[in-house]
Simulated scan of single mutants.
Amino acid sequence: MSLLTVQVPAEYGYVFGAATAIFFVNAYHSLLTGSYRRAAKIPYPNCYASQEVAEKDNAAFQFNCAQRAHANFVENLPTFLGAMFISGLKFPVLSASLGAAWAVSRVLYARGYTKNGPKGRYIGAVHSLFDLVAKVLSGYTAYTFISTLY
């Protein structure tokens, strides 16, 4: 067994900064969803307003949209952060930039989805591109680490 020494680039702090910004985006999603829950008067533990209620009450429909935007964010958060942290070992500034862009696009996604329904989410859908690039870069980073073994 051989040892692999990993040196973290000095610029890796930018990756930590982007991750911290993303944590605040999660808080934004929580506050947004909570405000729409109160406006729609949807009690806990209900995750969504029923379809019948949402079809008749715009506040309930907007709550459902905010809730779904937040759920989508949380579903994608672990893999994006992982890709950003891995790719940041080789491409710290680019990875941090992708993280910052992903964070902004997730706010736009939530705002668009909540205000204009499912079609409104397209304004922030570019987050998928940032996610893909981060994953490709993390794959390349992993390859470079593995290739040092041979």
Score class of each variant (00 low, 15 high):
residue 94 L to Y: 12
residue 117 G to L: 05
residue 112 G to N: 05
residue 82 G to C: 10
residue 24 F to A: 03
residue 126 V to Y: 15
residue 62 Q to C: 12
residue 122 Y to F: 15
residue 72 N to E: 02
residue 98 L to Q: 07
residue 107 V to N: 02
residue 31 L to P: 00
residue 133 V to S: 07
residue 62 Q to N: 11
residue 9 P to L: 04
residue 21 A to I: 11
residue 65 C to W: 04
residue 85 F to W: 15
residue 59 A to S: 09
residue 85 F to L: 15
residue 126 V to D: 11
residue 86 I to L: 15
residue 85 F to N: 13
residue 137 L to M: 11
residue 18 A to M: 07
residue 146 I to L: 14
residue 85 F to V: 14
residue 66 A to K: 07
residue 95 S to L: 05
residue 138 S to K: 03
residue 73 F to T: 10
residue 6 V to K: 00
residue 5 T to P: 01
residue 72 N to S: 01
residue 14 Y to P: 02
residue 18 A to S: 08
residue 88 G to Q: 14
residue 21 A to R: 02
residue 113 Y to E: 07
residue 122 Y to N: 12
residue 120 G to T: 06
residue 79 T to Q: 15
residue 37 R to Q: 09
residue 127 H to N: 15
residue 87 S to G: 13
residue 61 F to G: 00
residue 69 A to I: 01
residue 1 M to R: 10
residue 54 A to S: 14
residue 14 Y to G: 06
residue 30 S to W: 01
residue 99 G to C: 12
residue 98 L to I: 07
residue 146 I to H: 04
residue 29 H to T: 00
residue 140 Y to Q: 13
residue 97 S to T: 13
residue 57 D to P: 02
residue 90 K to Y: 13
residue 89 L to F: 05
residue 91 F to N: 11
residue 48 Y to I: 05
residue 65 C to L: 02
residue 137 L to T: 03
residue 19 A to H: 02
residue 137 L to R: 01
residue 76 N to C: 08
residue 44 Y to E: 14
residue 79 T to F: 15
residue 12 Y to C: 00
residue 131 D to H: 15
residue 29 H to Y: 03
residue 36 Y to F: 12
residue 121 R to P: 05
residue 33 T to I: 00
residue 117 G to V: 04
residue 133 V to K: 07
residue 39 A to K: 13
residue 18 A to T: 04
residue 76 N to I: 02
residue 73 F to E: 06
residue 53 V to Y: 14
residue 27 A to F: 08
residue 15 V to H: 10
residue 6 V to N: 01
residue 45 P to R: 09
residue 24 F to L: 11
residue 135 K to N: 06
residue 47 C to A: 11
residue 20 T to A: 11
residue 100 A to W: 15
residue 21 A to G: 00
residue 2 S to A: 09
residue 5 T to K: 04
residue 121 R to N: 06
residue 11 E to W: 04
residue 143 Y to R: 04
residue 87 S to V: 10
residue 148 T to I: 06
residue 23 F to A: 09
residue 94 L to P: 03
residue 145 F to E: 03
residue 91 F to D: 08
residue 14 Y to S: 04
residue 22 I to V: 05
residue 7 Q to C: 01
residue 14 Y to L: 13
residue 135 K to E: 07
residue 71 A to M: 10
residue 116 N to Y: 14
residue 50 S to Q: 03
residue 18 A to G: 04
residue 142 A to I: 14
residue 57 D to F: 11
residue 37 R to A: 00
residue 49 A to L: 03
residue 3 L to S: 09
residue 80 F to T: 04
residue 42 I to Q: 13
residue 59 A to Q: 06
residue 116 N to D: 12
residue 23 F to R: 01
residue 66 A to Q: 07
residue 45 P to E: 10
residue 18 A to Y: 08
residue 29 H to V: 01
residue 85 F to A: 14
residue 90 K to F: 13
residue 47 C to L: 07
residue 1 M to K: 10
residue 71 A to D: 08
residue 137 L to D: 10
residue 65 C to F: 01
residue 29 H to I: 00
residue 12 Y to D: 01
residue 16 F to N: 09
residue 68 R to F: 10
residue 62 Q to R: 15
residue 126 V to H: 14
